[in-house]
Design a protein around this nucleic acid. Structure first.
Length: 354
DNA sequence: GATCATGATTGTTC
DNA sequence: GAACAATCATGATC
């Protein structure tokens, strides 16, 4: 065994005279391996550990030969772009792919070198034993055993290589793909869509799943991002209502303009067709609560002399937000900006809704 | 670089 | 499981 160890160093030196980088890596890895592999073996059986490493390398596309042309791993290609600037992310993803490709190349190059070194060293040791067989009997089993030991050594080094590659991959993923690290502000359009919904549903800002999906689609973000946004918005609005008043005014006045436009369109439409009794568009108003909310919203839209209107208007103190609390989702819907509508026939309808 | 804004995560509550 | 509240981490602005 001692012979083997000395020979390993000697052979490694011979092998890596032309490959100093690999030699230094080998020596370093060998030294580390004594400790780290032992540590690994204490915690997990080497096979399980190796399997995990292999699985990760396979999943990341490092084990597979690199596909030329499009390059990169499928994991990256399928990663959702969380709002923000898609161009930037594309640049970053191409950067990620480049780094991944670099890791893959180094991994395969090193692996090939190790395999070659293993073959050469096995041949070298086998020859040494054959030479020794002239002086003492060397059984085939002994040769087989020695070859097994060499393969075991190189397998351990390979495992270290795989471990190092996995660590590099983890670092790379963390650097490039961690959503928290790479937080991007939503696009202006996404923010506007979300704010419009929020302020037009101020009495019950709890969008249904369908509404969330619609908002996500309109804003080019994911449903969970919509949920996060509403969660953050509700809390931050509640904490500091005053701060959001200006924003609320902007979005509600924007909605008023939109409402006016919609009203004009609806008036034109109603002139062309006879309105059905009680018809009020997509959100029929039937209850007293709806009327109350309509009046609330109308009052809310009136610029108050003090400029302070939101909190009392939305019934914040008396009717705190709670899912299904002050109103069901239907009630929430009816708290859209509802404006009195006089149809061309002169019959006042209950309202128009945005 | 200090500060604020904001998207995401985590632990808790219902 | 959804919402809340606290917190983290990053982006934007000055």
């Amino acid at each position: 065994m001692y012979l083997c160890h000395l020979s390993f160093r000697k052979h490694a030196l011979n092998c890596h005279r032309m490959k100093p980088a690999l030699f230094s890596v080998l020596c370093e890895i060998k030294e580390k391996t004594v400790v780290s592999i032992r540590g690994i073996q204490e915690d997990h059986p080497p096979d399980a550990q190796l399997m995990r490493l292999d699985n990760m390398l396979l999943a990341e596309g490092v084990s597979r030969p690199e596909k030329r042309g499009r390059g990169g791993s499928a994991a990256v290609a399928s990663t959702a772009t969380p709002g923000g600037c898609p161009n930037d992310n594309n640049i970053e993803h191409s950067d990620y792919r480049a780094k991944l490709s670099q890791i893959r190349q180094i991994y395969h190059s090193e692996l090939e070198k190790y395999e070659q070194a293993c073959r050469e060293f096995t041949t070298h040791v086998t020859n040494l034993l054959r030479e020794q067989s002239r002086m003492r009997p060397v059984s085939p089993k002994e040769i087989e055993c020695m070859v097994g030991v060499i393969h075991g050594k190189f397998s351990a080094i390979q495992m270290q290589l795989k471990q190092s590659t996995c660590e590099a991959l983890m670092t790379l993923r963390s650097r490039f793909l961690d959503a928290r690290r790479k937080r991007r502000n939503f696009s202006k359009q996404a923010t506007e869509v979300l704010n419009e919904y929020f302020y037009s549903h101020l009495s019950n800002p709890y969008p249904s799943e369908e509404a969330k999906e619609e908002l996500a689609r309109k804003g080019g973000i994911t449903v969970s991002q919509v949920s996060n946004w509403f969660g953050n918005k509700r809390i931050r609005y509640k904490k500091n209502t005053g701060k959001f008043q200006e924003e609320a005014t902007i979005y509600t006045s924007k909605s008023t303009v939109d409402a006016t436009k919609a009203r004009a369109l609806e008036s034109q439409a109603s002139c062309l067709s006879v309105p059905s009794p009680g018809s009020s568009g997509p959100f029929p108003l039937t209850s007293a609560g709806d009327t109350f909310l309509t009046l609330q919203t109308l009052a809310f839209l009136q610029p108050s002399p003090g400029g302070n209107c939101l909190q009392s208007q939305v019934g914040w103190d008396t009717v705190p937000w709670s899912p299904g609390g002050c109103g069901s989702s239907e009630l929430g819907s009816s708290s859209h900006l509802m404006l009195p509508l006089i149809s061309c026939s002169g019959v006042p309808t209950t309202g128009s809704t945005l």
